[in-house]
């Protein structure tokens, strides 16, 4: 990101999420109790144009609920989601319904592609739906998109089950690109792929960012995916964003005990690693009955008395990149 001019850093983020809360009717909810399941609690972050924002955390922490709220698959209970298109800022309509500018790539590529359509037809669908380009130019555009993601033209006639997982995920990305989006949300899109395939897809995402200035929200429970590629990163635990900042800083100087625990749990393919992994004790608490005070205190090795009773506020850690996204943490260890 060093090639960016400072101006892009100060500019309004492409996507701004402010104080977002997403609730579901809990399993235990009855008409009488009206128990609500708060999946996301007051989360705020911004995605800069032409950057990759990685959102990490254990399963069930609310990552996907944020993605669903952004693409309006789920109605937020409160909060603001603002999308500032760089092309048509004047069009209020596209701001309120940025369906074309924000595309999604899902985890399970076999479920995301219609089994009865040839993959070329799936890639063409956004072109037809959004009326992009003249009809006769669309087959050529499909071939162009396919070659961009490294799918050979003959494969466009194949059905999803005939392709490998990596090829299917490329098709899903080509379909997302067909809509000419400004932001692509990749929700665990790399989780089911193994080593070499994953490396290739990561390279593709990096190229799309660098060459087309596309922005990505990359959601993953696997920090090693995000570490390799994200510019900025947010760490979630039990619906809360507990740490956020430039990826290099968060990974080099993790400030929250939870971020440190996540990093310590990544298995390293290095000599001398026998029995070096450290897990977190216990299971994540139920979001229906979150612990009082800091939500992480029940599994935190550094928990203090205050952590059990009051919630930590956001503390900004001084850093030299302060012109970019600020490195911030919600933890009493860092408050004065």
């Amino acid at each position: 990101m060093n090639t960016d001019s400072p101006a892009t850093h100060i500019a309004t983020p492409l996507l701004t999420v402010e104080d977002l809360t997403v609730e579901y009717a809990g399993a235990a909810a009855t008409r009488r109790t009206k128990a609500r399941f708060k999946a996301v609690r007051g989360v705020s972050f911004g995605i800069r144009a032409g950057s990759i924002f990685g959102l990490v955390g254990e399963s069930g922490c609310g990552k996907s609920s944020i993605a669903r709220a952004i693409v309006q698959l789920q109605q937020p209970s409160s909060g603001v989601i603002r999308f500032e298109s760089k092309f048509d800022e004047s069009h209020e309509a596209s701001k309120s319904s940025p369906k074309k500018q924000i595309q999604m790539v899902f985890q399970d590529s076999l479920a995301a592609l219609s089994p009865r359509r040839r993959v070329g037809q799936s890639i063409a669908e956004p072109l037809d739906h959004f009326q992009i380009g003249p009809r006769q130019s669309r087959p050529g555009r499909v071939a162009e998109l396919a070659s961009q993601v490294g799918i050979d033209t003959p494969l466009l006639a194949a059905y999803p089950h005939q392709l490998s997982g990596g090829q299917r995920q490329r098709v899903s990305i080509a379909r997302a690109l067909a809509a000419e989006p400004e932001l692509i949300i990749a929700d665990e899109s790399l989780s089911s792929l193994d080593g070499p395939t994953r490396t290739q897809i990561l390279a593709l995402i990096r190229a799309l960012r660098d060459q087309q200035k596309l922005s990505f929200l990359l959601i993953s429970h696997d920090l090693s995916v995000v570490r390799d590629i994200a510019d900025d990163v947010g760490v979630m635990y039990l619906g809360h964003l507990v740490e956020m900042g430039p990826a290099a800083e968060v990974f080099h100087q993790p400030a929250h005990p939870y971020t440190r625990a996540l990093l310590a749990a990544i298995p390293k393919a290095l000599p001398g690693q026998r029995n070096q992994l450290q897990g977190l004790p216990g299971e994540p608490p139920s979001p229906l009955t979150p612990p009082p005070g800091c939500v992480f205190h029940s599994r935190c090795s550094q928990a203090m008395d205050t952590c059990t009773s009051s919630q930590p506020t956001t503390h900004v850690i001084q850093n030299e990149h302060s012109i970019q996204i600020k490195h911030q943490v919600n933890c009493f260890l860092h408050s004065e």
Binding site: A261, A265, P267, L277, G279, P281
Partner: peptide, 11 residues
């Protein structure tokens, strides 16, 4: 599994 769970289960 998640990495944190993986670490404790491997142990």
């Amino acid at each position: 599994l998640d990495v944190t769970t993986q670490a404790s289960i491997l142990q």
